[in-house]
């Protein structure tokens, strides 16, 4: 029986899709079966970040409507056993997703995988609410920036009121992933500090993902960052987050880029 995660944020462009791909891959790299689900109907992008865009045949709406069975719509990752993608539809509008249809597909996914990771669309409208509705655990992705923190606060409010768990009177488990964090700028006082964001949102911290060129590089080639370069700082931060989700106790450190011998050599020459 799977644990269902929703990766959500309110604000767009903060790293939901990157986080979904990276966490999904990190969990699968740990040997568990994972399905990442794109809920961003009309603007799908998880297929592109996962590098499966050329192989999409059916999508979530086809499965909800019964045009295709779930196993026919799932795209198996070519690099990592146990990692699967259920893409969103590119063309039809989100009203095509019925509550009952989504509930049925989520039940099927739950029975099939160890982890289901749902990539929420931006915003607080129906699409975002549908993505979070069946979740057991919510991952709130936030940038250390005022508008992102405010939007995350609104999303936390929705997680506590509009989800199946909330409707049953249970507390939704929520975790914060702080992305694009630059410790130098935070130290200079030019960026919100981790403690500031945690104090404002008051949900536990799952990971700090440092700002890194490796994230763009990975999306360029269509490979989750944890798979593309497992040793880079953001990949190690996501891998630690995956371990924490599995209940392992991993100390929270801000991963930094390990400098290679050549890097050090050139740095010294330049200095």
């Amino acid at each position: 029986m799977a644990k269902v995660l929703v990766v959500t944020s309110g604000k767009g462009g903060v790293g939901k899709t990157t986080t979904t791909a990276a966490l999904g891959a990190a969990l699968a790299q740990g040997g568990q079966s994972v399905c990442v689900v794109d809920f961003d109907v009309g603007l799908r992008n998880l297929d592109l970040v996962m590098g499966a865009e050329r192989r999409v045949v059916y999508d979530l709406i086809n499965v909800v409507n019964g045009d295709a069975k779930l196993p026919q719509a799932l795209i198996k990752d070519k690099r990592l056993d146990g990692l699967h993608l259920l893409p969103a539809s590119q063309t039809r509008d989100k009203d095509a997703l019925t509550d009952e249809g989504v509930a049925r597909v989520m039940d099927e996914l739950r029975a099939k995988f160890d982890w289901v990771v749902c990539d929420s669309p931006a915003g607080i409208e129906r699409g975002a609410q549908l993505a979070m509705h069946h979740a057991d655990v919510a991952i709130v992705v936030t940038n250390p920036e005022v508008s992102s923190v405010r939007d995350s606060d609104r999303i936390i409010g929705l997680l506590d009121s509009k989800t199946a768990k909330a409707e049953r009177g249970e507390e939704m488990e929520k975790h914060l992933i702080l992305t694009r964090y630059d410790p130098m700028r935070a130290d200079r006082g030019d960026m919100l500090k981790t403690e500031d964001v945690l104090e404002i949102l008051s949900i536990p911290l799952l990971a700090i993902i440092p700002e890194s060129q490796e994230v763009l590089r990975a999306s360029n080639v269509g490979c989750p960052v944890t798979l593309n370069n497992p040793l880079c700082a953001p990949a190690r931060a996501y891998a630690d987050a995956a371990k924490r989700l599995k209940g392992e106790d991993v100390p929270m450190v801000l991963p930094t880029e390990r400098k290679s011998f050549l890097d050090k050599l050139f740095m010294r020459r330049a200095a």
């Binding site: 865009e53 045949v57 059916y58 295709a68 069975k69 026919q72």
Partner: peptide, 10 residues
């Protein structure tokens, strides 16, 4: 219908 696998490669 369940025993039909459809693939597409663009």
């Amino acid at each position: 219908p369940d025993k039909v696998k459809v693939t597409l490669e663009r």
